[in-house]
């Protein structure tokens, strides 16, 4: 009998926590209790960086993290947070679940991690205190919460906004005091933690779709039998369904806050075009700045996109 410990910052009652628990239950059932996954959620083992480091070193067996801490294993991974990376939702899903192992697998292996599947974070939206950002110029000169990634920084600079990098837990207090006026956050996550209560104007900018990772420490993986490795495939099998659930829940939550009278703004084609135009050429610039590893990573992504169609 083997027990593997899986760590995540996601609350256990969130869609991510529930998915992890359901995978654990399925594996327990499939293996007749031979292989157990103990999910430790709610950031009990620390923030995402800490969890990822513990996974690399085999202190926890399985880690579920967003794209943000992945820059620990290589700054080039930031390419995945660049705006409008994918042409359509379907293309993004196809790249994530059919090609990501080829694209990012080697980087993870180098860091001592074996990918199990890829984790949907949802689309980024824009939360604002005063007014929605119908076009990105609305953010010009404003203090804007961004994630601590080079791609978010570059995008904020493009928009003429003052990008203030901070963790997700600092965002609500910063919006409250006015330390920032707007925030880029994944929509589902942002609403789940109550960001809309301090920054009610939600612009559904859907400008990025970061993909996180579920991976097992190589140190733990080596100790598993072939049979046990087989059972772990439940992660991979249920990945795409989890992605659909997250995207669906995000939409449902947006509708719910909209129904409660909150100003949720959906962009028309012209506005979307303006948002997209604001990030034109940004990816190439960023890749050049990040070096050859990023160039080849982007090449792989483009090949996968072509393969998936639009």
């Amino acid at each position: 009998e083997t027990t593997l410990r899986a760590a995540t910052v996601a609350p256990m009652n969130s869609p991510w926590g529930q998915w992890a628990q359901s995978v654990a239950d399925q594996i327990a059932e499939k293996s007749g209790g031979e292989l157990k996954i103990e999910v430790i959620g709610d950031a009990q083992l620390g923030d995402e960086q800490t969890i990822l480091r513990q996974g690399m070193k085999g202190r926890v067996d399985i880690v579920m993290v967003s794209n943000i801490p992945l820059s620990l294993i290589g700054q080039e991974v930031d390419v995945f947070s660049t705006p409008y990376l994918f042409d359509t939702v379907e293309q993004g899903t196809c790249v994530a679940y059919n090609h990501m192992s080829d694209i990012l697998g080697p980087n993870l292996l180098e860091a001592g991690l074996v990918p199990l599947t890829w984790m949907e974070i949802g689309h980024y939206v824009t939360f604002s205190k005063e007014a929605p950002a119908l076009t990105p110029d609305a953010l010009s000169g404003k203090k804007l919460r961004v994630a601590a990634t080079t791609s978010d920084e570059a995008f904020a600079r493009r928009l003429g906004a003052v990008g203030v990098p901070m963790g997700t837990s600092d965002t609500i207090p910063a919006l409250q005091t006015g330390n920032v006026e707007s925030a880029f956050l994944p929509g589902l996550f942002g609403i789940a933690i109550g960001t809309h209560k301090v920054a009610p104007h939600i612009t559904v900018s859907d400008h990025a779709r970061p993909i996180g990772t579920v991976a097992i420490s190589e140190r733990s993986y080596k100790k598993l039998s072939d049979q046990e490795k087989e059972w772990l495939k439940v992660f991979e099998e249920t990945g795409p369904a989890m992605s659909a659930t997250i995207l669906g829940t995000q939409e449902a939550l947006l509708k719910k806050v909209e129904g409660a009278g909150l100003p949720v703004v959906r962009l028309n084609d012209e506005q979307i075009a303006a948002w997209k135009a604001s990030s034109e050429g940004l990816r190439e610039e960023l890749v050049e700045q990040l070096g050859p590893k990023a160039v080849s990573l982007l090449e792989k992504i483009e090949t996968a996109k072509a393969d998936c169609g639009s």
Binding site: K143, D170, P173, A174, T177, G178, N179, V180
Partner: peptide, 8 residues
């Protein structure tokens, strides 16, 4: 400074 948003 903290509560008018100038600094954390």
């Amino acid at each position: 400074g903290i509560y008018s948003g100038y600094f954390s």
